[in-house]
Design a protein around this nucleic acid. Structure first.
Lengths: 154, 154
DNA sequence: CGCCACTGGTTCACACGTCAACCAAAGGTA
DNA sequence: TACCTTTGGTTGACGTGTGAACCAGTGGCG
């Protein structure tokens, strides 16, 4: 492998700043929802997708695609959510292998209450600090980085 | 609470892009180190701080401050790292409550091998895609967001 | 000195994530 | 039809993270 130059001071600062922004932002939003609404970020995303689906129902593997989750993760998490009464799982009639997941009444109530508060948090913690130009720039960066990663892991 | 406007399309896109950049970047770097060097991101950070400390040794609670980790997390993780022979823990002589953590020979070898490869990954996945202006902008954003979060959670 | 709050750590219980092994239904293909 | 692979999910083992309870040593303070 060819020699790779170490990060210089400015790069160090930039890298640390971006990483801690990530961590702090994620932790803040997760903690808010957890304490205030009793939902983890994972719970929230599951409920968002279900509540947006027709009938509040999705095939399990379809939900996995939307979330980009491994199947075992999905299975375990849905199990816990089912125990808490947030979703209902049942074997699919069309394909006896598969499972249909439906959001419960309780799940609907929770996501309905949590969503606007979450949006408010996202605004307060992120968008409110950004100019239009900065928003544009960071979106561009995110797209480029994501594209670059896709090439790195084929 | 006052009514908070929902995210518009552009904000939605920006938010999703930034969040997935975070996730993909973190996952890529973690997986690289795990598969190639046998270290998790958490292991790596512990070893970095220890290897930079005089004598490769730190008081446990000092290490916790540097990492911004909860004490139980630190205790559990150091326990696992000690079992793997990466660090050594011993009661501090100065304060019988506390513990000194020292990086082992094996830990030193691993971090020495892993660090340059990690830096190369960071470059390939992040810095190589950014112009100087973009680097400047994202650093500014990170600082502002971090500052804003500090105010939100006193 | 004797009490008592604080500090530094560990431990327990639990939520969450990955990987590998496993299983049953579905869907080719000979 | 019988076989064989693929697909959709579950399970078990383990590493990782949080919060609460606990515990011993430290350091005031009357």
């Amino acid at each position: 492998m060819t020699e790779v130059p170490w990060l210089d001071d400015e790069e160090q600062r930039a890298w640390r700043a971006v990483m801690t922004m990530q961590d702090d932002l994620a932790e803040f939003l997760d903690r808010q929802m957890r304490n205030r609404d009793g939902l983890s970020k994972a719970d929230y995303e599951v409920l968002v997708h279900l509540s947006e689906a027709p009938g509040g129902r999705l095939r399990s593997f379809r939900l996995g695609e939307l979330l980009r989750w491994e199947k075992s993760r999905l299975s375990q998490h849905l199990g816990r959510m089912e125990n808490r009464g947030l979703v209902i799982r049942e074997r699919s009639l069309a394909d006896q292998r598969g499972a249909d997941v439906t959001i419960s009444r309780r799940g609907t109530d929770l996501i309905t209450a949590a969503a606007p508060r979450h949006v408010a948090d996202v605004r307060a913690a992120f968008f409110d600090h950004l100019t239009a130009a900065e928003l544009q720039t960071i979106t561009t960066i995110a797209a480029k980085v994501k594209e670059g990663l896709a090439k790195l892991q084929p």
